[in-house]
């Protein structure tokens, strides 16, 4: 399968924080959700994908091209939605359009007007008067109006009400009906991913824990509950992290088959949500 974004061994170090040895592929025609706790390095990774930050080492290719020689061509094909307003606050949407549109060869005025209509955005009011949701809609209208093949979004649903979040997901699904399009977006709201994501990339403390299809995640990871006396040094190996309580244990496994073989019917096995996985993986850290 074709990769639209490819990171090979990418490292970026800051004082007291780093993103290290990231190997990440984003598959063409699919939605990849990018999850991780605050400070895990999601925004840093996205900035490197957007060439807003340069990696210290490693290679980044977008559409198979690199930024050194094809920056303009790559940017032309990306629609970027950033958390928060990136435009000058005093401007209105009409002015912003006038500035942004000439930068894109494939800018489509009709499409832009359609989004402005659909999102009920005022063209003549300064952006600073917009609510958070309206600002997000404005960013989206601009990002989607030049027929981009790749949409990259950093926390697009943060701070949005549930109704607009759902509308946004509908819009993104419509966008994906054309199989040549790809979406990569980071989020904390993992229920958004349950609905539209095909692949999940999970970043923790600057390292990529996994990048798997939602089916692989569902088949490998599970929550296991049982009586504490079932646990010993050998049986514990089946788990990523274990919470013990006087009433029993609850643990995350990344190998459901091993748990089945070890415990059989003596434990309860439940589907692990992405939140469960993030939470238990975080718990594992504190023991290291």
């Amino acid at each position: 399968m074709e990769n639209v974004v490819e990171l090979k061994n990418v490292t970026k170090k800051f004082k007291g924080f780093s993103v290290e040895n990231i190997d990440l592929q984003v598959k063409k025609g699919f939605v990849t959700g990018f999850i991780g706790a605050n400070g895990a390095g999601k925004s840093t990774t996205i900035k490197m994908i957007m060439n807003l930050l340069k990696p210290d080492t490693g290679e980044i290719k977008i559409f198979g091209l690199d930024y050194q020689t094809h920056e303009k061509e790559i940017k032309e094909r990306i629609g970027f939605v950033y958390d928060g307003n990136v435009f000058f606050e005093g401007l209105n949407l009409k002015d912003i359009k006038r500035i942004v549109a000439p930068a894109y060869k494939h800018w489509d005025d009709t499409l832009f007007e359609q989004f402005v209509d659909q999102f009920e955005l005022p063209l003549n009011k300064a952006i600073k008067t917009f609510s958070k949701g309206m600002q997000m809609k404005a960013s989206l209208a601009i990002a989607l109006s030049h027929h981009a093949e790749l949409i990259i979004m950093d926390e697009p649903t943060a701070g949005l009400d549930p109704i607009f979040r759902r509308e946004l997901l509908n819009l993104l699904q419509e966008f994906m009906v054309d199989g040549n399009r790809t979406i990569f977006f980071s989020t904390h709201i993992t229920t958004d991913l349950d609905r539209i994501a095909d692949y999940i990339a999970f970043l923790q403390r600057g390292e990529l824990v996994f990048n798997q299809s939602i089916h692989d995640v569902a088949e490998n990871y599970a929550l296991v509950k049982g009586r504490v006396e079932l646990l010993d040094r050998d049986t514990e190996k089946a788990f990523v992290h274990i919470h013990r309580a006087p009433t029993g244990f609850e643990a995350l496994t990344n190998n459901v088959n091993a748990v089945n073989n070890t415990f059989g019917n003596s434990v309860v096995i439940e589907r692990a949500s992405l939140e469960d996985i993030m939470y238990y993986m975080k718990g594992r850290e504190s023991y290291v």
């Binding site: 939605v31 009906v177 939602i214």
Partner: peptide, 19 residues
Amino acid sequence: PSMRKLAKDLHISVITTKR
């Protein structure tokens, strides 16, 4: 329906209808 259209109509991910 194409798997992409079905995914959109059912509000589920494309990889699910693909499978």
